[in-house]
Design a protein around this nucleic acid. Structure first.
Lengths: 175, 175
DNA sequence: AGCGGCTGGCTAACGCTGTTAGCCACGAAA
DNA sequence: TTTCGTGGCTAACAGCGTTAGCCAGCCGCT
C-alpha cells in the first residue's frame, strides 16, 4: 500500500509541504497556518483534505517508517546477516531526517491509522539478523533507538566519537 | 546544591504543583493557567516567581535528574559492580515517573540552567560499573534509555515480557 | 507614628495555536 | 440547463505563553 492508495493527489501535495516544514524546522514548526501559508491557502481549507492535524502527522510518520524499513531491507540485501550493516543503515536513515525521526518516535504510535503491516515490515530485517530471537531484537532496537535519539537531542557531550559507542554496542550484541 | 539554594519558598511550592500536574497528566498538561489554577492564583502571577514556563520545566528536569542519580547511587552502594542492579534501578525510577522522565529526556538538556555537576553525577555510577570505559557506558545508557522510552511510548507489542529483553541486553554488555 | 518601597497578587490585552460554521465560485455530470 | 460536489474563503472561539500596568499589604527606616 503506497500513499497513492490512501491519499488524494491534493492531500499528497499537502503532506509533501508538511514534510518539508518538519524537515526544515522540526515538528513544533508544523502549524496548520504555516502549512497553509506554504501552499498559498488558508488554514481552514486544509480540513477539506485531512480531518485534523494529527492525520497529517500520521501520514509523515508512515512515510518515515516506510523509508526506514526500505533502508533496512536494502542493507540486509547488501550484507546478509550483518548486524553492523543494519545498525549503520538505521543510524544513517535516522540522522538524515532527524526531525522526521523525532516526529515518528516521540509519541505513541497511531497504529490504527497506519498502513497495516508497516510496523511489522519495519521490524523484520532486524528480527531476521537476530535469528528470529525477538528478545534479542528488542534489545538491539532499544540500543539503536537510544543512540539515535540521544544524539539527536545532543545528550552526549559535544564532539564525542559516537562511532565507537555504536561499535561497542553492536559487538556486544553480536554474540 | 539542593533546590533550597536556588528557589524561594514560593517558587518551591509552584514547582511542586507543577510536578504533580506533570506526573498526573503528562508534560503537555503543564500550562501556566492550569498551574496557576491549582495554586489558586492567576497565570500572570507565576511570572513573579519564574521568568517563563521553561524555567519551571527546567526545575522539574533537575529534580528528575537528581532523583535518578540518587537511585543509581543507592543501587551501586547496595550491589557494587553489578550492572544488572543499576539497570533495574534505572528502569524502576523511570517507570515510577514516566511523565517526568519524558519531560527530562525528550528535549535538548538546558545545561546552562542546571545545577553544575548534576549531569556528571547522574552518569558516574554507570561509568564506574563499566570500569570507566566511557564508550561502553554510552552504549549501555543508550540501551537503557531506549528500553525505557520505547516502553513508555507503548512501542513494544502489548503485554510482552520486557524483563527478558532487559536481561538479554544487560548480559550482552556484561562481556 | 508615619512613610517608602518591595512583594505578590490582579485585569486586560496581544499574537499565536487548532478547529468550526457558514458562505461562495467553479466545473462536471445528469 | 440545472444540480451538486469540490475546494477555496472569512469570521469566530477557546486556549496557549507572555507583557504591561495597577494596587494592596507589609517590612523596615526615620
Amino acid at each position: 500500500m503506497t500513499d497513492q492508495d490512501r491519499l488524494t493527489p491534493r492531500a499528497r501535495e499537502i503532506a509533501a509541504a508538511a514534510r518539508t516544514l518538519v524537515e526544515e524546522a522540526g515538528p513544533e514548526a508544523l502549524t496548520m497556518r504555516s502549512l497553509a501559508d506554504r501552499l498559498g491557502i488558508k488554514a481552514p481549507s486544509l480540513y477539506k483534505h485531512f480531518p485534523d492535524k494529527s492525520a497529517v502527522e500520521t501520514e509523515l510518520i508512515a512515510q518515515q517508517l516506510a523509508e526506514s524499513a526500505e533502508a533496512m531491507e536494502a542493507a540486509a540485501a547488501r550484507a546478509p546477516g550483518a548486524l553492523a550493516a543494519l545498525a549503520d543503515a538505521y543510524r544513517a536513515q535516522a540522522l538524515a531526517h532527524p526531525h522526521l525521526y523525532r516526529l515518528a518516535t516521540e509519541r505513541p504510535l497511531p497504529r490504527h491509522a497506519l498502513p497495516p503491516g508497516l510496523e511489522a515490515r519495519a521490524a523484520t530485517p532486524l528480527l531476521r539478523v537476530c535469528g528470529d530471537d525477538v528478545e534479542l531484537a528488542r534489545a538491539v532496537w532499544a540500543f539503536a533507538h537510544g543512540m539515535v535519539i540521544l544524539e539527536i537531542h545532543g545528550r552526549f557531550p559535544e564532539g564525542v566519537d559516537l562511532a565507537t559507542a555504536w561499535k561497542t554496542g553492536v559487538e556486544a550484541f553480536k554474540r
